[in-house]
Structures are given as C-alpha cells and as structure tokens.
Simulated assay, not measured.
Amino acid sequence: MKVGLELGEFGWDGGPAAMGRTVAEIATVADAAGYDLIGVGDHVWQGPHAGGPEMPQLECFTTLGVIAANTRRCRLAPIVAGVHFRAPALLAKMVTTLDVLSGGRAVLGVGTGWDADEAAGMGFAFPSLTERFTMLEETLEICLQLWRGDERPFEGRHHTLARPLIEPKSLSRPHPPIMLGGGGRKTLRLVARHADACNVYPGPDLAEKLDLLRALCAEEGRDYDTIEKTCIFPFAVGEDGTGAGELTDELHRLGEAGIDTAIGIVSGANPVRQVAVIGDKVVSAFA
C-alpha cells in the first residue's frame, strides 16, 4: 500500500500571507515522511464540503509548481483536472511542464468535473455530463497523441488541432501516467481503454467497482494488473495522533481489497502538523 495526500482545504492558520510557506512546508514534510504522491484539488471555488466559495481555494497547477520545487521524490497530480477548465492541448502542456520541472514526477489526474455553480459563477462552459464524457475521451486522445509526438492534425467533435506539438517532451516515458477520477461504468471503461490508474471512493461498493473494472479490462484487451487502483477519502487523524490506529487498519483493509494507493484529503488549520503526524504514525507502517 502506498499513501498519498491531497490538499483540498486552505483555511489555514496565518491566512493568505502564510499560504506559500505552508504549502512549501507541507511538501517538504510529506516528501521526507515517505508519502508517495501529493495532489491538489482542481477548482477555482472551494466546494460546499469545505465551506463553499467564500472559503479560500488555491489554483491547482500553480500550487503543484510550488510543491514540485520543495520535493524530490513524491509524485505530483491534480486530483482531478476538470475537462471543462482547459483546452486539452493546454492541459497536456501544463502536465508536461510540471513533469519536466519536477524531474519526471507528474501525473495527469483528470475527470469530467462536477461543480455547475462554480462554472457559472466564474464563466466556464459546463456542458451536460454526456458531453463532458465525450470531451474527456477526446482529451485523453489528444494528450496521448501529443505525448507520442504524432503531429498529424486532430479533428474531433470539440477540438481541432492543426499541428499537435509539444516541446520539450515529458521526462516520463512513454508519457506522464494518466489517472481518471470516478467509479462509474463510463469512467472505468475509459480507464481500461486509455489510463494507467483509476481513482475511486472507498465506499461499500468498492469491490463491485473493481470487479467492473476487471471485466471492462477483459473486454478492452487490457491487463487489469497493469492499472494502479487508487482511492481518496478524508484522513481523520488529530494533531495528537488520535485516529491513526484506525486509519492504519482501514488502509490494510483497502490493500486486501485490491487498492494500491490511498490518498488522504488533509484538512484543518494546521495541515503541516497533520501531515507530519500521519507520516510518523501511518505512512511509516507501510514503508
């Protein structure tokens, strides 16, 4: 079992003036503690689960750049980029740049997106879910073509590229790993067809989701075992270590169920302390 973390809340001690220092400290502590991955939620408004749009929310890729500069080994990922925020070629360019500047540690986490109020409030187009699934597959096709170095024109339903070209190329080979967020049939089929990892919630239907992914891999001619199975949920561990034992037991159960990587959403006013405590009492148990 590998353990990662996601920055999903930013209501930290010290407010905006301390955010740069806090992000750098989280990155340094997590990297030294053995976390496998650091992710950042891709939103421009904070979600209702963390107080809504009046609460602070840092932009994902800018934050990942700061994290990259303060780490040496952790993988780095948007969890997960919404397809409605950026043109696919720009998304591929951003992930490639992150990969190059981090020494080959970027992951493309991507999904259909979900917050219609955020999109309307900030002026982003937000098509129907059916259309966003079409956009997601087209995004994957464009990213993979760019990373292959195939400069032939691309003509899709949503995007046309006259000359798909990225320089410099990514350091990750054959490309930065692709992780798709979501556990429904449509998403898991795209995982089987295009991705390197899935990202699901560890609810009571987890076994059903993994069984479905296995079946879809068989239909697509894909080796199920080549796909990294990740899940994401809040890590409820207090600054004094309360809850660490329960979390460790939960991660063992998830590993037995077939999960390879658990990503914890870190919250609270002092995230540096929480990351350090989880690293000491939980991550170390899986070293």
Score class of each variant (00 low, 15 high):
residue 12 W to V: 13
residue 14 G to Y: 14
residue 16 P to A: 10
residue 20 G to S: 08
residue 21 R to V: 12
residue 28 T to A: 13
residue 32 A to E: 11
residue 35 Y to N: 00
residue 36 D to F: 14
residue 40 V to Q: 10
residue 42 D to R: 06
residue 43 H to C: 03
residue 61 F to S: 04
residue 68 A to Q: 12
residue 77 A to Q: 11
residue 81 A to Q: 13
residue 83 V to N: 08
residue 86 R to T: 00
residue 90 L to M: 11
residue 95 V to P: 00
residue 95 V to R: 11
residue 103 G to V: 01
residue 106 A to S: 01
residue 108 L to Y: 07
residue 108 L to T: 09
residue 109 G to K: 00
residue 114 W to N: 07
residue 116 A to E: 03
residue 118 E to N: 09
residue 120 A to S: 04
residue 121 G to K: 02
residue 122 M to F: 15
residue 132 R to M: 05
residue 132 R to N: 09
residue 135 M to Y: 07
residue 147 W to S: 02
residue 148 R to E: 15
residue 150 D to I: 04
residue 151 E to W: 08
residue 152 R to A: 15
residue 155 E to M: 02
residue 157 R to K: 14
residue 159 H to D: 03
residue 164 P to N: 04
residue 165 L to H: 14
residue 170 S to Q: 12
residue 174 P to R: 11
residue 174 P to E: 12
residue 175 H to L: 05
residue 180 L to A: 00
residue 183 G to W: 15
residue 193 R to H: 01
residue 204 P to Q: 12
residue 207 A to H: 12
residue 212 L to Y: 05
residue 214 R to S: 13
residue 228 E to Q: 03
residue 229 K to T: 10
residue 236 A to L: 11
residue 237 V to L: 12
residue 240 D to P: 02
residue 241 G to A: 13
residue 247 L to R: 15
residue 252 H to G: 07
residue 254 L to I: 06
residue 259 I to N: 13
residue 264 G to V: 07
residue 264 G to C: 07
residue 272 V to N: 06
residue 273 R to M: 07
residue 277 V to W: 14
residue 287 A to T: 13
